[in-house]
Design a protein around this nucleic acid. Structure first.
Lengths: 158, 158
DNA sequence: ATTATACATTTGTACCTACAACAGTTGTAT
DNA sequence: ATACAACTGTTGTAGGTACAAATGTATAAT
């Protein structure tokens, strides 16, 4: 806790200096840092449930398919962070009983992945916890500010 | 390339929907995703020099010390992302000859870490590349917009 | 002086990411 | 029909992250 506070304080200070650091560098740092803070927060929320953010995201994507077959490429396309290895992530979800994997009959190169009832049940339990964390994270900003922030981030990515 | 574009397009679509997703969830997703995009960009910039973002950040911190001794805690405090293991990062920088490590004589629990002339030379070469990437990333936004973005992110973190 | 406590770093383990090499499958062009 | 290229997923390796336990050192309490 002590270390964490010191560390935050130091970076906060850097990010508050209007000058000194070029604006471009400062912005890049600020987004990266905020992203990490958010990641940590969500990660802590999920920790008691013994699941990583990555596994959680895959599960949510599968639920979104509503029973339709999903192959690895589909999953990768929908992920927030690039996934060079969805294979091994799915392996772990299979071990937990949250997911099933079959070879696609129409195209044997593909694998079809489904969420199990246990997977759905699990998601149902942690969804509200994550939603709470999300509103908690964004609570310092008004609705108007959040909209502006979203617009600026989207514009930044072109 | 093909996959990458599809993937981006899909998330971009999600982030452009004004409704459907709660604003808090959308914002969290947007910041995380933008952070990843930035990370990838910087990472690609550093790739030809065979150094990771993390190692690069440690080197920059050491340079900032201007020859003063730096221990592991100091480094951790200044890092953008939490570092549960600076020891092994430093190990790799030592192997590359960019850094030296000594046991602190005043307090033998501590280690003192210094950047070597080769480390400084290396930084000098890649600094402009990184700066260019940073201005490139932020180029879609005006100076005013960047300032607003920084303020909103800082406010979000309280 | 001895013991307990805090500190600074290292080490071990499990998981994730990036990249490259590989293997099996499919589609296609001749 | 065969050869070749493209597709889909798996596996191996190197680095990074999070957490907990271990090691060695310094400081405080008694």
């Amino acid at each position: 806790m002590y270390l964490q506070q010191l560390y935050m304080k130091e970076l906060e200070d850097i990010l508050l200096t209007t000058s000194e650091i070029p604006l471009a560098k400062k912005t890049v740092l600020n987004i990266s840092y905020t992203g990490n803070v958010i990641r940590d927060s969500i990660s802590n929320t999920l920790k008691p449930s013994d699941i990583s953010i990555e596994q959680f995201n895959v599960l949510r994507i599968l639920r979104g398919q509503k029973g339709k077959a999903t192959n690895l490429q589909d999953i990768q396309r929908r992920m927030v962070s690039k996934m060079s290895n969805t294979t091994r992530l799915v392996d772990k979800l299979i071990l937990k009983g949250f997911v099933e994997r079959f070879i696609c009959k129409k195209n044997r190169r593909k694998v079809e992945i489904f969420i199990t009832p246990q997977g759905l049940e699990f998601l149902k339990e942690i969804d509200p916890l994550v939603a709470e964390a999300e509103t908690d994270i964004t609570s310092p900003l008004s609705e108007e500010e959040l909209k502006t922030l979203n617009n600026l981030l989207t514009k930044l990515r072109n």
